[in-house]
Amino acid sequence: METLEAIRTRRSVRSYTSEPIDDADLQKIIEAAASAPSGGNRQSWLFISVCDPKNIARMRAICPGIVGIPAGIIVLCLDLQGQKRENLPIINYLDIGAAMQNILLVAHDLGLGGCAIGSFHVEGVKEFLKIPDHMEPVLLTVLGKPKSIPSAPRKKPLQEIYFHESYKEK
């Protein structure tokens, strides 16, 4: 799939079949996440995949943002590097966002549906997945074979959100 086509046709998929995710596909997805740009090439991230249906059921119990039953969950964590979460530079969080977008695009290219999830209990997820104190789960990405694909959501017209050379008041 062409990159632009993948970007244009990707949707946030929230309903999945029970088909598991192929190991080779999961590997490609994680490699894509780890290939994302990061400020100063810090790569201060860590990815944890959860594919056992029992563990997915348990994760759903502490992650209210997960709708439907995905075949896999990828937890994107940030290394706090000895700092408090609120003191970390915003670029560290943006790096996680870039990794998440890579995950969603490659998953889409592989015929999987996915959705980024921000509604989950951070400490609960840390406890359940035995994530060390210096790592902070920032985002989840849920994946699976789509049962249904939502129609394209309305996007703001470029005239509203894009200016060339300088900003112009409307």
Binding site: A57, R58, R60, A61, I62, C63, P64, V67, S119, F120, H121, G124
Partner: peptide, 27 residues
Amino acid sequence: LLVSYMITSARGLYDEPEEYGIFRLID
């Protein structure tokens, strides 16, 4: 698991948009 989901949802709603509450109840 459902009880856990409901408690976690209740906690989450302190920090999330109010309308998420409707969806959590439906879910």
